[in-house]
Structure formats: structure tokens, C-alpha cells
């Protein structure tokens, strides 16, 4: 257990350091351009899973949170000239508030109503942005980028570094939730809500907490987006594709552990980048098919397959140890 934990924290430290150093030693711009998108999806899928995987509430509005984050950052930049980290913080706060709002409205109802409400929130917010001239309305707007800070050569390189930090943050949060009382409470209410409540779990508050954390992370992932693309427009920013992606990554990777969505995101987002020049439509089709396939055949995703394989390989170990190991790993 200690070994696992040590290597985790080593990785958590190494990723941002690499994110800082690698962009400065040359390397083709394209790699950072692609890696940024992959990491962005790692954050989105991880954030999605905090609510979807642990608590069992399906958020169809990943695009809404992502887009709201992007536009919050844009407004903060345009109206107040806020620096990037303030933009991200502002986006996270707005995202948390949206999460709490959607939660308060529907979390007393059955799960499906929460899902529908998140689609609704996405469209309503998108419509507001479409009609808001200050941020360019339907036609979008060019983002005027200030000079690149921290001595990075280009924005792509800087934002790659920023995204490594967000990724590590998201993973640390998800891992903490999974192992702590928060995750235990969320699992309990997902499995049997009234029994959880009668075991002392404040179910509504815990769900709202998960909504807020998940929403904040998704919005934070969207915050660097205006600077990354240097052009922002509502249709693609609020795209339903973000929702499909986050959901399928969590489903394919496995929803029960923090590394499931990470695995799923890396797999799906990197193949998406590879397929981008060939046929993005076909990739979407494969993603959809994979999602349905996994949900039926391997409901625990790659995590489940890995755990199953481990069991097959090491039958010598005692069941107790296995249970302990999977609990702490």
C-alpha cells in the first residue's frame, strides 16, 4: 500500500514538472497541441466520474460545464483583464454553482431527471451565449492573447503545462474522494439511498458536494480553451460531443476506480486525435459502439478487466489480501 501511494505522489509531482520542462526543450508544437486535448479529456472524464461513477448520477451536460468555464474565462479576460489562473478559479466557482443549481433542482428526483436537467441546462446556457453580443453571440469572437507568461514560447506550450496541473489536481481530488468518507458515502447512496440515509449519510448534501466538485473541475478544464483556440464560438464549445466523450471514457475505462476514466480518456482521446485527419465521424461511431458494448458486456470497464486479469494471474494470493489490495491500491 505504501509503495502504491509513494509512486502515485511521485507521478503527481512528476507530471507538472515534465509539463514545465518538456515545452521548453524544443519538440514539435503539434505534440503539445494534441497532448493538451488528451489531458483536457482526462480532467473532464475524471470530473464526470465523481458524480456519475461514484454517486450514480449521469451528467449529460459536460459540454455545458465546459462551455460555461470557457465563457467565464473569456468574460473575466475581456472585462477585467484577469490573468489565466484567476480565469480558471472564476470558471471553477461558476461551474460549482451550476452544479449545485442543477442538483438542487433535481437531486430529490430519480436519476434520469438529473440527466435531462443537465441537457436542458446546456441548451439554455448556450442560448443565452448565442444572444449575448459582448462575447460575440452566435458568430463567436477572436480572442486577443496577451504576451505568453512564464517564459513559454507559445500559448500551446504554456497551456499544456497548465493542463498538466489541472489533470493532477483532478486526479488527486478523485482519488481522495474514492478513498475517503466522501466516496464511501456516495457509493452507499448510489447502492441504496434510503439505507444510506438511515446509516447517517446526509445524502442530499453529499450529492450536492459531488455536483459542485465535478462541475468546478469540468468548468476549470474549459477555462483555458479560449486562449488555446484563440477563437471561440458557442456551437462547438457547448457541443454534445463533450458529454458523449466524458461519458464513454468513464464507461470504457471503468467507473469504480479513479484510474478508470483516466485510462478511458487517454485511449479514446488519443485515438480521436489520430483519426482527426482520416475520419472523425467514423471515430465518433466507434466511440458510440464501444460505449454500448462495454456497458453491456464489461460493465466495470477496463478497470474490471484488469482486476479480473490480476485475479487470473495471481491465484496464489489469498482472497483477503486481494480484497485489501484492491481497496487500497
Amino acid at each position: 500500500m505504501r509503495n502504491n501511494s509513494t509512486s502515485f505522489w511521485a507521478f503527481a509531482l512528476a507530471l507538472p514538472i515534465l509539463g514545465f520542462v518538456l515545452p521548453k526543450v524544443g519538440l514539435n508544437e503539434y505534440y503539445f497541441y494534441v497532448a493538451y486535448v488528451v489531458l483536457q479529456y482526462v480532467v473532464l472524464a475524471t470530473a464526470w466520474n465523481i458524480l456519475g461513477g461514484y454517486a450514480g448520477y449521469v451528467n449529460f451536460g459536460t459540454g455545458a460545464f465546459f462551455g460555461l468555464g470557457a465563457y467565464t474565462a473569456l468574460v473575466a479576460m475581456k472585462a477585467f483583464g484577469a490573468p489565466l489562473f484567476v480565469q480558471i478559479a472564476a470558471a471553477a466557482i461558476v461551474g460549482a454553482l451550476l452544479g449545485i443549481g442543477a442538483g438542487l433542482l433535481t437531486l430529490r428526483l430519480k436519476g434520469i431527471f438529473f440527466s435531462i436537467a443537465t441537457i436542458a441546462a446546456a441548451i439554455v446556457i448556450e442560448t443565452f451565449i448565442l444572444n449575448w453580443r459582448f462575447v460575440g453571440g452566435a458568430s463567436g469572437m477572436q480572442v486577443i492573447r496577451p504576451e505568453v507568461p512564464l517564459g513559454f514560447e507559445t500559448y500551446t506550450r504554456l497551456l499544456f503545462f497548465v493542463m498538466t496541473i489541472l489533470t493532477v489536481l483532478a486526479i488527486i481530488v478523485a482519488r481522495y474522494i474514492e478513498k475517503s468518507w466522501v466516496g464511501r458515502g456516495l457509493h452507499a447512496l448510489r447502492d441504496a439511498e434510503s439505507a444510506a440515509e438511515c446509516s447517517g449519510v446526509p445524502t442530499l448534501r453529499l450529492k450536492l458536494l459531488a455536483c459542485a466538485i465535478s462541475g468546478a473541475l469540468m468548468a476549470a478544464a474549459g477555462a483555458p480553451f479560449p486562449l488555446y483556440t484563440s477563437f471561440i464560438e458557442p456551437h462547438s464549445t457547448f457541443s454534445l460531443n463533450y458529454s458523449v466523450m466524458a461519458l464513454s471514457m468513464a464507461v470504457v475505462g471503468g467507473m469504480s476506480r479513479w484510474w478508470g476514466p483516466v485510462l478511458g480518456a487517454i485511449l479514446i482521446a488519443s485515438t480521436q486525435q489520430l483519426a482527426a485527419s482520416a475520419s472523425p465521424e467514423l471515430h465518433l461511431l466507434v466511440v458510440g459502439l464501444l460505449m454500448v458494448l462495454f456497458v453491456i458486456v464489461a460493465p466495470d470497464g477496463l478497470v474490471g478487466l484488469v482486476q479480473w486479469a490480476r485475479k487470473m494471474v495471481g491465484p496464489g494470493r489469498k482472497e483477503v489480501e486481494l480484497a485489501r489490495g484492491s481497496e487500497r491500491a
Binding site: 458515502g185 447502492d191 447517517g200
Partner: peptide
């Protein structure tokens, strides 16, 4: 509960950890 409502994704002892913790 009349129809048992275990936290089925957890082990038996983890089920008890919920009220113990909360």
C-alpha cells in the same frame, strides 16, 4: 428494511464502515 438494502458494491465489513464513520 423489509427487503434488505445492502450497499452491494461494497464488502460486508465496508457496509458497516458507513455507519461507523458517519
Amino acid at each position: 428494511f423489509q427487503i434488505p438494502r445492502p450497499f452491494h458494491s461494497m464488502s460486508v465489513i465496508e457496509n458497516l464502515m458507513v455507519p461507523l464513520e458517519y
